[in-house]
Design a protein around this nucleic acid. Structure first.
Lengths: 123, 123
DNA sequence: ATTGTAATTAACGTTAACGTCAATGGTAAA
DNA sequence: TTTACCATTGACGTTAACGTTAATTACAAT
């Protein structure tokens, strides 16, 4: 169990950010006897997910939806089916993203080859 | 040459957005005789870049830096070298992103396999 | 027990990225 | 040329994602 300060340092964010994430229901650390937030290993895993989502342009609201969906009690068959469906759709999106990145990379490499050629010719 | 309305529709954004991009120096469409913005093919190419950047979480400021760098006069050898260096660094970043996405995808697929197994066992 | 540092809530402040509105001017069709 | 719509420039409004400050409480060390 880490304190809020330690957790903030681990992820390189402010304590305000962690409190804000709790405000909007992204995670709920337990409280100590003196009402202070204690962050578990699970909370850290959740935070990793959140920051990865952020890095790729998802809004906190979108991240919240994903996180909460994977957190609902998945006891019922219906719930399980919905989760699988949702998950597969997300995987599809990720595949599309990878394709786009690959295309972007090739485009840039093409540009760079041109520049290098130009540099050679100039000397 | 397209009007602002046509261009906005092409990209599915508001005209305000296009004017804002001009405000912050992201692109500078030429003006008609009556001072109205006219968007060229080049402007459209630039906009494609902008929206792709946005999709992957870059701020408009970051996008501006990239766009402007690739726009400076690349006549000098020094300029060309700088551009190549910058471009290669970006390609490295893109490769890292692809790796991360791949890992995320595998992680999700692993989760989904688990869920599917659970679903099978439940019936 | 005191002193210094860290945490709490509540509230207001800030910035990026637009939205909206008003007053005015341009343009195309009848 | 009038009608109707589209565009232009301010200027103020809005929302997400925090920052900052203040008043109060908890904890750790002396």
């Amino acid at each position: 169990m880490k304190t809020i300060q330690e957790t903030a340092e681990t992820f390189g964010v402010s304590t305000r950010t962690l409190r804000y994430y709790e405000e909007i229901g992204l995670l709920t650390p337990v409280r100590s006897s003196g009402n202070q937030r204690m962050y578990s290993k699970q909370d850290e895993t959740r935070l990793k997910l959140i920051f990865r989502g952020k890095k790729y342009g998802f809004s906190l609201e979108e991240i919240r939806e994903m996180v909460l969906l994977f957190d609902e009690d998945r006891t019922g068959k219906k719930q399980l089916e919905r989760t699988i469906e949702y998950g597969e759709a997300r995987v599809q999106e990720i595949e599309a993203s990878i394709q786009e990145f690959q295309a972007l990379k090739e485009e840039m490499e093409h540009l760079l080859t041109g520049f290098k050629q130009k540099l050679k010719e100039e000397q």
